[in-house]
């Protein structure tokens, strides 16, 4: 989690705070999206290792994955002080972006850790 917090420190304020009119700097928006991507990838690998070490099988592992992703969404929202639209062009950026891209990494590391710890 430490790396995630650290990576998000570079998140920049890009909205202007007006309720009626929000402008986004596209460079900052891209930077924010990159940070989401990194934190998601990192977390999906960590989640895979956790699931593998705990020995979760079947549906439980995927539930853990989506649970951790939900927590990370919540963390990102908290980092944006719950005014997501000041940082991103839509709420889906925080909730859905990178959700399925990390799945492959998750499965790989889940299998890897599970095999090393439990199978042999």
């Amino acid at each position: 989690m430490a790396a995630k917090d650290e990576s998000k420190n570079s998140q920049k304020k890009s909205g202007n705070g007006n309720d009626d009119l929000v402008l986004l700097n596209s460079e900052n928006l891209q930077n924010n999206m990159k940070i989401i991507f990194y934190s998601r990838t990192f977390l999906s690998i960590i989640a895979g290792v956790i699931a593998g070490i705990l020995g979760l099988t079947g549906l439980m592992g995927f539930i853990l994955y989506f649970f951790i992703m939900a927590i990370s969404s919540l963390g990102l929202a908290a980092k944006a002080k719950f005014s997501v639209l000041n940082y991103f062009d839509s709420c889906n950026r925080i909730i859905l972006d990178g959700l399925f891209g990390g799945l492959m990494s998750f499965v790989l590391f889940w299998t890897f850790a599970y095999d090393i710890v439990h199978i042999f």
Partner: peptide, 12 residues
Amino acid sequence: LNLFGLRGLFSL
């Protein structure tokens, strides 16, 4: 499996 799954790690 490695070939596809390591893409995320590489990007990190």
